[in-house]
């Protein structure tokens, strides 16, 4: 049978129409509302960020409130062995927190000062790029989130993170948790974990535990894209730096040094 040019074009046209129609049909078929919704109390932001004010922090005088509160809230085990320790938020001296941003004559008070460090919730997070299972992903509000159910413990993310913000569970963490927070899960042997910017608290309308716990108002949290937020105001009025900005990860944790 001969196919006329006209006939061929007709069939072709119908095929193209079919291809266009398929996604449309799909979109309409799925329009029945999701059975889950956000808590109306939830704090919402476009890009969450944190500012640490080293001039106010009293870590060197023994204050550990931010760390204790975070680790208690999230059932982070206290393992003393440096090689196996788990940490979501901790302190580093200047030369570890900001390598390459100091020099030999830097003021002793800065050199010896501890800086509170945690996951930077980078705008371009290398950990998200390397995760083979999408267990680490970026939420729309900028939080770099971990889905522990998907983590296979490959530790690519730990190799990729330039801030050492991730810890691996070499053993069952449960025996090392002094008082369990019964409202939050623990982790298990074989998964990686890190700070989650307190998503579970933000989703319920609360500020991050570290920010709330700081008795010296050295931590600020808010939406960087919102000009009226605490963090935006502070960033506009102070000189602040980030950790390892040269790597292009665009961290969202900022530091006031002096």
């Amino acid at each position: 049978m001969e196919i006329s040019r006209r006939h061929f074009l007709k069939i072709g046209g119908i095929c193209v129409l079919g291809l266009v129609a398929q996604p449309l049909v799909k979109a309409f078929a799925q329009s029945d509302v999701s059975k889950a919704s956000r808590d109306p109390k939830a704090l919402t932001g476009k890009k969450w960020g944190l500012v640490f004010d080293a001039t106010k922090c009293k870590y060197s005088e023994g204050c550990r409130e931010c760390i204790l509160s975070c680790h208690r809230t999230h059932n982070v085990p206290a393992i003393d062995d440096k090689k196996e320790e788990i940490k979501w938020i901790w302190a580093e001296p200047y030369e570890n927190a900001f390598p390459g941003q100091g020099h030999e004559y830097i003021a002793a008070e800065i050199k010896e000062k501890p800086f509170i460090v945690l996951c930077n919730h980078c705008t371009d997070p290398p950990c998200v790029r390397v995760c083979p299972t999408k267990a680490t992903f970026k939420r729309e509000d900028g939080i770099v989130m971990m889905d522990y159910h998907r983590c296979i413990g490959c530790r690519f993310c730990m190799a990729a993170c330039p801030y050492g913000a991730r810890s691996f569970n070499f053993k069952d963490p449960r025996p090392f948790i002094k008082e369990e927070n019964k409202e939050y899960p623990t982790r298990e042997k074989g998964v990686v974990e890190k700070c989650n910017f307190c998503v579970e608290r933000l989703d319920a309308g609360l500020m991050p535990a570290c920010v709330e716990a700081c008795p010296h108002k050295a931590l600020f949290f808010g939406d960087l894209e919102e000009p009226g937020s605490d963090v935006s105001k502070i960033l506009r009025s102070h000189y602040t730096i980030q950790r390892k900005p040269e790597l292009g990860t665009r961290p969202n944790v900022y530091y006031i040094i002096v």
Binding site: K35, A36, R38, D39, D203
Partner: peptide, 24 residues
Amino acid sequence: WVVRDGDRIYVAENGKKYEISLQN
């Protein structure tokens, strides 16, 4: 819904609402 979308309220067939949580 919780981990990937941040939606923590479940709306049941009968309209009742529940906190989405295995433990809680």
